[in-house]
Design a protein around this nucleic acid. Structure first.
Lengths: 211, 211
DNA sequence: TACCTTCCTGACACTCCGTCAGATCCGGAG
DNA sequence: CTCCGGATCTGACGGAGTGTCAGGAAGGTA
């Protein structure tokens, strides 16, 4: 990622002045925009540069390659990981727990609606084994995963008799939350509304957490 | 896909003789092998050709591009979609239903263990919007999705009062099954065994289907 | 051997990548 | 206002990989 910390550097390690920061940000914005139209695979450095009205060479001043820029965007998006953790801790039993689950599901959907293209790439690149994207994704999801696993464990009174593994259950729940949020558009075409998604995933999560 | 029906054609539409079929198959095998080492993005036609001991130009005789070859493999893998549908129909209540769910989960894991690389690409390409991969994936998953949705609907006595949407629930369950199967390796490093995965996903599926 | 079909290849034009030396820009010192 | 020096950008290029084509090799048949 080319965006760690506060001081932003270019590819040779030098601090960026204000003019450069503007250019860099415009390159990032252009990348975001273009990703709504074409896949990462089809996204050319030349496209991004043209959109910004600069030369391809300028792009390489700030980013190693297109993936590097997207990685940066993915980092930003992941950092906006919504207030899910707040909802995690507390009592999961009964209607209050279900409401908790609804809030989490809803926050996930909002998160994905706002960063669909970039989050999709984050996950696919991560699935394909790219270590940098894996790191960004983990950083965002790990707390959710651990939080869910802890709640599963707690609310079952630690009885492993059910045969369910807390971490596996948490991973499964995370899968539902992500997938339904990611596929919102597609499911809508089959008559599944946003509320349906929230309610359905919330109930599965709630049932799984409380056993 | 370059593999529809029985008679196999080359890129110009001519029927393949026995020698050509062998070459084509070797190209496919080499592709499978290389996909275990590198990502689709890094897989060059030249690599595949060299592996087979032929020229890059030969590759283009049988496939439009690398994706086309992988698509063909994805189609083959998807067709081997295991005997999941057999387990879907029937009574889901009680221990028998849970056992049903275990069989499905187990079959999913086997399926993914056998075709991990190709199925991953099928899904990521499909996620990225590639219509051809979407078609292959749908063809494989649609029956599972519909079957699960039908069971959800049936076993709830059609009471929509629970607020869960059958199709959304089915999509969520499919997400769990796929993700846990796809991430088996990674989860194992955290001490989650195959049995844990089967039992956990089976129970979530069973609970969700029976309400 | 001569021939014909099937299959494969060398060679090429093209696209895009990533780098570098040098041009351009711009604010501040004089 | 003019000039200077660092900050920023660019044109031009070597390289890798793609996809195509005319023609060459391989193998069967008579």
């Amino acid at each position: 990622m080319s965006d760690e910390g506060e001081v932003i550097l270019d590819q040779t390690g030098r601090v960026l002045g204000p003019r450069a920061q503007t250019t860099r940000q415009r390159l990032l914005d252009a990348t975001t925009g273009l990703l709504d139209e074409k896949s990462l695979r089809d996204l050319r450095v030349a496209d991004i540069a043209r959109q910004v009205g600069t030369s391809p060479a300028a792009f390489y001043q700030y980013f190693k390659d297109v993936e590097d820029a997207v990685l940066c965007l993915a980092g930003q998006a992941s950092n906006e990981m919504p207030s899910i953790l707040e909802h995690l801790d507390g009592d999961w039993r009964g209607e209050a727990g279900l409401e908790r689950a609804r809030r989490i599901a809803s926050a996930f959907i909002d998160h994905w609606d706002q960063h669909r293209a970039v989050l999709r790439i984050r996950n696919t690149a991560s699935d394909e084994g790219d270590a940098r994207f894996q790191a960004v994704r983990s950083e965002a999801m790990q707390p959710v995963l651990m939080g869910l696993a802890a709640q599963v464990k707690r609310n079952r009174g630690d009885k492993p008799a059910t045969g369910e593994h807390p971490l596996a259950a948490a991973a499964g729940l995370a899968a539902i939350l992500e997938r339904l949020a990611a596929y919102r558009r597609e499911l809508e075409r089959f008559g599944v509304t946003r509320d349906d998604l929230v309610e359905t995933s919330a109930r599965i999560v709630h049932r799984t957490v409380t056993g």
